[in-house]
Each structure stands twice: as structure tokens, then as C-alpha cells.
Design a protein around this nucleic acid. Structure first.
Lengths: 245, 245
DNA sequence: CGGAATTCCCGTACGGCGTGCGGTGTGTGC
DNA sequence: GCACACACCGCACGCCGTACGGGAATTCCG
């Protein structure tokens, strides 16, 4: 049950042929670019300026091609986004086989997901809107399922567990990044330019009508370093997903 | 730490004044519509034809107004989406106070979230792209925090727990809906028109290179009725989030 | 070596989007 | 009854994704 997304698969583009790069035909003018190069350019653009900056025109300009040339390599923008997701999924350093300590393996897998998502901040949002399984994502899924095999879960439950774990990481990284962006814009030392949203929240909280919210926002917590928070939540998550195993 | 979303808060629109509907000024022509009516129309449109069908032009047409008239009530489309989310958050039937059985309360809260999201299939996607806290969403949050208070969690951890729970429900409902859409289009009895994505997955699985995936897809699982699956996962989720409490 | 075949490149154009601007008309309060 | 404040909204602009089709490049075949 991977991820989220309200849009059903958009029409067209047989997955079978999407992920098996067709051989270059031996006749005619040879391509000046490549699907991978285009995908890489799109990723660089998204990393630097956000997912919204990924337009066909901008990607084409970045590799020095005319806009419409992209359509020789990619049937449409949606497919390009799927290619971006899969290329980035290849950043996983997957051992050939699980170590035998499934708990450690699972933790490490999730940590890697977090690292990748922090490196590509657009990824959580992109994942939440579609469900892609290219070769790289497939490899990661297969590995995670192998890790989960020795746990006492039914086979379909392993799929659910994987999806829940990925969803958790995506959701948490989004939150982390939003936090950091807010702090960064008018830092915590110069509290005056504090993000309007945060200021609003605090004003509402101190208003008296939301005592529990006020409390949650007031107490700073045991250890609020991002990595520590993530570690703590991840452990709780794994405990829950594999409860009693 | 509510929800996900890669986009930071878009510029402008002081939340303080967004959620407190300004009094109608006593001079000049009285408005022919209302913010609530516009929001309702937008929700109806999204329910019927998906979030992509919600354009300023379409919403305006639905209430019999010119496109630009909407901008008298709403500063921009992003704000309209936030209003939609908050209005729909008001569907929660929130008891005045928790029952004392936090586990049951939490379960029921999540069930309600699921119900709302199934009624408004665009909601998970909309939530994942922004982080809104209007009065209705705020009330739900406050209630959930009250439910969590007796659990042995630090106050900030309660916020995290709420967010994770909401994220889980959203993610799961998206998956449920995608499933059902796939079945519906070329039902399971007439297996031939089976969704291309699913067919691809199965073909890849039976190919031999993904034994664990094949296994997970093959075994039908203990109980795959949507409600049962959700209940099972929800319990695992709650166990994890409140582990050892 | 020359044409034919094949393939890529991409300028132009179309329909649709969000929304800024400013004219028009309507209702209110004095 | 008058002036003003405001809502209404047509027009236009600059984006977007992408359909179409002519021209350029390369290879194949005779």
C-alpha cells in the first residue's frame, strides 16, 4: 500500500515499456540528449528552486534544447516526474542481503530514506501525489521486504509496513524542512521577523481557548535536535509496526 | 508537527485576519455571495470532479458569478484551498471532553478522519501540499491533544503523534481509494481490463527477480476488507506511537 | 557516391490557467 | 437626493502543457 496521492494513474504510458529503455534505432539522426540527462536536469532544477520551477520550458533551457525536444524522450511531464522519483530512489545504498539484524537494517533503511528526502526536498511532495515503481524504487522495496521477512508478519502486512514506514519518513521530513525554513527566515535570535504562521499559532495558543495546544508549543521537549527527534519517532514507529515480534 | 507538504507558506495573507471574518462594512453595495458559499461550491466541485477541476473560473461559474468576483471574498486560490480544508475539518463530531479511555477516543478520532477523507477524496492530496490551521482544524487538534494528555508523552510529542496519525490516515485513504478506482475500472471479475499498473507489478513480480515482492502480492492476507485492514493498521500505529504507555 | 528513408529538432500555435487593472453600476448613509 | 464606497466583472497578460508539422541531420542501400 505505497504512499498517498489523490490522482489515479493518468492515462497512457504503458509502464512495461516506460522502464525498459528502448534500444537506440540504428537508422536516422542520433539523439543529442538522453532521458537520463533530462531527468538529471529536472532534478537539479527541483533541488535548487522547488518542484514548481520544473516546467518543460525550464528543463529544456537547462540542457540547451528547444522545449518540444523533450517530448522525444518523455511522453509528458507526469512521466518526467516519475523518472525523477525513480532516479533519486537509486541513491539508496542497498546491501546485497539483509544483515540478519532486521531491526538495525530497518532503522538504517529509514535513515537513508530521510537523507535522500532531505537532499531532495521536493521528494515528499512528489511522492504524495503519485505512486511510481520504477526499477530503483522496486529494488528498494524488494530489499525492505527481504529485511522484514524474518519478522513475524504476514507477507501482505510487510507491504503495508513498508508503505507506512515510507509515509512516516516523508511526512516527518516535510515537517522538519518546514520548521527549518521558518527558523531560517528571520531566525530565532531576531525573533521579530518570525514566520507569520508560527506567530499566529502562538497568539492563538496564548489566548486561553486552546490550553493543550499552548502546552505543547510551550514546553521545548527533551531533545529537539532534528536527528534525535527523528530517531526517537522512528524507534516508536518500528516498535508499533512490528509490535510483539 | 502537522502533516506534510514541500511548499512553504506562500507569501501574503495574514492568518490572523483570514480566519476572523471581517464585519461587513456598513457602506457601499452589499456582497451578493459569501466566503462560505464560495468554499462550499469549491468543495462540491472537488468532490464531484477532483481537485484539478477546482479552478477560479469553474467555481465562479458554479455560483453564477464572474470569475474575478471571487477575489472580493478570497485573496487567491491557495487561500480558497485552505478554506476548503478547514470547512471540511468541521465535519468532525468532537465530544466536549475525552471519555477517559484515550485509546478508544484516539481510535474513534482516526476513524472519523478516515470517514471525512473518504467523503472528500481530494482531501489527502490537499493536506499533503499545505499546512493549514483554521478554527475547525484547530478545534480538532485541541481535542486530540486533550485525548493524548493522559498518555505518558511529553507535550511536544503529543503534537508529533497527532501529525503522524493524521498523516497515516491520509496516506492510507489515498491508497484505499486508488485500489478501489483500479478495481472499479475493469472489475476483478472481468480481469482483462485490469489496471495497467497492477498488471505491470504482477508481471514484474512473477519474473523471478523479486521473490519477496512476489510473495507479498501472492498471498491474499488474513482479512482484506478495507475497514478491517484500516482497523488493523490503526491499532499497530497507535501501539507504536504510544509504545509502552 | 547519391538518393531515399528514417529519425530527431523545435518554431509556432492553441486552449487553459491564475490574476492585475480599471470601468460600471448598485446600494447605503448623510 | 446625492455622493460615496464598494461589489461586480470584462479584458488582457504572462505563464503553463503540449499537438502539429516542416526542416535538418544521419544512416542505409543501390
Amino acid at each position: 500500500m505505497p504512499r498517498t496521492g489523490s490522482a489515479g494513474r493518468s492515462a497512457g504510458v504503458d509502464p512495461e515499456q516506460l522502464w525498459s529503455q528502448a534500444e537506440r534505432p540504428r537508422r536516422g539522426r542520433p539523439p543529442a540528449h538522453s532521458r537520463a540527462a533530462i531527468t538529471t536536469a529536472a532534478i537539479a532544477l527541483a533541488d535548487a528552486e522547488g518542484l514548481a520551477a520544473v516546467t518543460m520550458r525550464a528543463v529544456a533551457a537547462r540542457i540547451g534544447a528547444g522545449t518540444m525536444s523533450l517530448y522525444s524522450y518523455v511522453p509528458n511531464k507526469e512521466t518526467l516526474l516519475e523518472l525523477m522519483i525513480d532516479q533519486v530512489s537509486g541513491d539508496h545504498a542497498l546491501p546485497a542481503a539483509p544483515s540478519g539484524n532486521w531491526r538495525a537494517d530497518l532503522r538504517q533503511f529509514a535513515q537513508e530514506q530521510r537523507t535522500i528526502m532531505r537532499r531532495h526536498p521536493w521528494l515528499p511532495g512528489a511522492l504524495s501525489a503519485r505512486q511510481t515503481l520504477g526499477p530503483n524504487a522496486l529494488a528498494a522495496l524488494e530489499y525492505a521486504l527481504a529485511v522484514l521477512a524474518p519478522v513475524g508478519l504476514e507477507a501482505p502486512a510487510r507491504l503495508e509496513t513498508f508503505s507506512l514506514l515510507t509515509g512516516f519518513v516523508a511526512s516527518h521530513v516535510s515537517y522538519e524542512l518546514a520548521q527549518e525554513r521558518a527558523v531560517e527566515a528571520g531566525g530565532p535570535t531576531s525573533g521579530e521577523l518570525l514566520d507569520a504562521q508560527a506567530r499566529y499559532l502562538r497568539s492563538v495558543a496564548t489566548e486561553g481557548r486552546y490550553p493543550h495546544l499552548a502546552q505543547a508549543l510551550a514546553v521545548p521537549g527533551p531533545d529537539s535536535a532534528p536527528q534525535a527527534v527523528f530517531d526517537r519517532l522512528l524507534d516508536r514507529m518500528i516498535d508499533g509496526l512490528t509490535a510483539g515480534m
